[in-house]
Computed example of a mutant assay.
Amino acid sequence: MHTASDQGFSDFFYAAPDGLRLHARIYGEANTDAWPVVCLPGLTRNARDFHELALFLSREAARPRKVIAFDYRGRGLSAYDPDIGHYNVGVEAGDVLAGLSALNIDEAAFVGTSRGGLIIHVLGALKPAVLKAIVINDIGPVIEIEGLCHIRSYLDRTPKPKTFAEAVDTQRRVHGAGFPALSDADWSRMVAAIYRDTEAGLLPDFDSTLVDTLAGIDFEKPLPDLWAQFDALAAVPLLAIRGANSKLLSAATLKEMQRRHSGMETITVEGQGHAPFLETGSLPSEIAGFFDRAEANQTK
């Protein structure tokens, strides 16, 4: 089901394989002569994170593209799942494939931030032909425990600001040290993307039980790595973006990714941590240029 909007996108609702009602935003629906771009957000984030990047890719880029930004189950406008065991990257990858099938999209370029990048690794195992080019934002086959601890501790005590201004102050206080490059407008955009306005005030726009999915992780042990899944992406054009202050993706892991994927391009974003804001600086034009090069090389 499509619902049009005057903000540059339409809302698309579809059924997950288990029947749950899920949502995605579609930008530039008429742009059909280039690979579409699929945007996959982080753990508790949603399609709104990609609004500015999606507007650029669908309207301002040299080769405008259709962009689909997904809300995973339990986030944004997608329904919450009564079984928190379904909040995992395998189920979410299946949900993304169901959405693409409903939209008759067989292949696309992908942008995955954090958890979205992990889902791309899974898609490479489930349906490798769907991946034409990949941008992974501050994630790799090895997740640093320190970064995951930071995420869990923040989510465990998710702030409950009463006003928008208070929410901006809170986000800046919690994350500001890792993101000195951000402007006031950047912080405001972040807050608008992660909170929803309700009668009870501002609330984080995700199912609060998502926090419980991190409870079973043993932070004393290294997490399982995804090198085998990453190696399976060796033939897919890849751009890896890392925040210079990231605690989740180490410089050493990025270097090893480059060694294993000889054609991989990299961007390190100064003044930002996990995960860089993809609408800032030259990132939108660099992402657009990467997709254009990847598509041109494939059609030679």
Rank of each mutant, 00 (worst) to 15 (best):
L22D: 00
A24C: 15
D49E: 14
Y14K: 01
L22C: 03
D49P: 12
E29R: 14
A16R: 08
L20K: 01
L55P: 01
T32W: 01
L22S: 05
D18A: 08
A16P: 03
A16H: 06
I26Y: 04
T44R: 02
V38H: 03
R25Q: 15
L43S: 08
G42Q: 10
A30M: 06
L20T: 13
Y27C: 08
L40W: 07
D33G: 10
L40N: 09
H23W: 14
C39S: 13
A54H: 04
H51A: 07
T32G: 10
I26T: 13
E52W: 08
R25F: 06
A47N: 02
F56M: 01
G42V: 11
L55E: 03
N46Q: 12
L57G: 07
L22K: 02
R21T: 13
A16I: 11
G28W: 12
H23R: 10
L20A: 13
E29F: 00
Y14A: 00
E52T: 14
L55C: 13
R25C: 11
N31F: 00
R45W: 09
R48M: 06
D33E: 15
F50C: 03
Y27N: 07
T44D: 01
A16L: 11
G28S: 12
D49Q: 11
A54Y: 04
A34G: 02
F56S: 01
T32I: 14
W35Q: 12
E29T: 13
A24P: 12
C39P: 07
P36I: 06
R21I: 00
W35S: 13
P41W: 09
G19D: 10
G19R: 12
E29V: 11
N31R: 15
E52Q: 14
A47T: 02
R45C: 10
H23P: 04
A34E: 10
L57Q: 05
W35T: 10
R25P: 00
Y14H: 07
F56W: 13
A15T: 05
R48S: 13
P36V: 06
G19M: 11
G28H: 11
F50L: 04
P41T: 10
C39H: 06
T44P: 00
A54T: 05
A47P: 03
C39A: 15
A54C: 08
I26H: 01
F56K: 00
C39D: 07
A30L: 12
A34T: 14
F50K: 09
E52F: 14
L22P: 00
R48Y: 06
A34V: 14
